[in-house]
Amino acid sequence: MLGIGVLMGVAGTVAMDVWAILLERFFGIARPNWGAVGRWVVEASRGRVFHDSIGDVAELPGEARIGWAFHYLVGAIYGLAFIALAGADWLNAPTFPAVWVFSLLTIGFGWFLLQPGLGLGWAASKTDAPWRARGLGLLAHTVFGLGMWGVALAV
């Protein structure tokens, strides 16, 4: 069951990344900067979680790799957490509403930890278009949930 949880989380993350590529290609919406996230991960491990702007912190070698690894690790953890909450019975008859609600709730970590950590404010409040960023985040997390659900249906 743990393996299925990890697979669900990784598949959800892949779905989210494909979604980001499509948004960039067809609508010109920039993909997430995983290098900045990697820099934040390193800074957080040193005890500095919140920044006025992560761009003010010197770039680090390998920060993009760190950011991408963190992105997929978090996805795998979310998959495990969902399976732990939903249980084996859910896998016997996976429903989208359950995984969708969970995937929407996970955006809270982005809104209230990662975004302020990067200097973007609570729930992207310091960006040029906070409601647009929030809406795109909710859509991305919906796609994450669809990816997780797809794996659950396949297994």
Rank of each mutant, 00 (worst) to 15 (best):
L146W: 12
A123I: 00
G150D: 08
T127H: 07
A129P: 00
H141R: 10
W131N: 13
W122T: 01
A124K: 00
G150K: 04
G135D: 04
D128F: 04
S125C: 05
S125W: 00
V143F: 08
M148E: 07
W122D: 00
L136S: 03
G121Q: 03
S125M: 06
R134V: 15
F144Q: 07
A123F: 06
R134S: 07
A133V: 13
L146G: 08
G135C: 08
V151H: 09
G145H: 06
L139R: 01
A152C: 12
D128Y: 03
G150F: 09
A152S: 12
A140I: 02
W122K: 07
S125K: 00
L138R: 04
G135H: 04
R132A: 14
G147H: 09
L139N: 05
S125Y: 00
W122M: 13
A133N: 14
G145S: 11
G137C: 08
V143D: 10
L139V: 15
A123L: 07
V151Q: 11
G145F: 12
D128P: 09
A129E: 14
M148W: 07
T142P: 09
L138Q: 11
G121I: 00
G135W: 09
G137Y: 03
A123C: 11
S125L: 01
A140M: 11
M148P: 08
L136P: 05
A152Y: 09
A133D: 14
A129G: 02
R132E: 14
L146A: 15
V143H: 09
L138V: 15
H141C: 04
G150N: 11
W149S: 02
W149I: 02
A140P: 02
M148A: 05
V143A: 10
S125R: 07
T142M: 11
R134M: 15
G145Q: 07
A124H: 13
L138C: 13
V151W: 11
D128Q: 14
G137V: 02
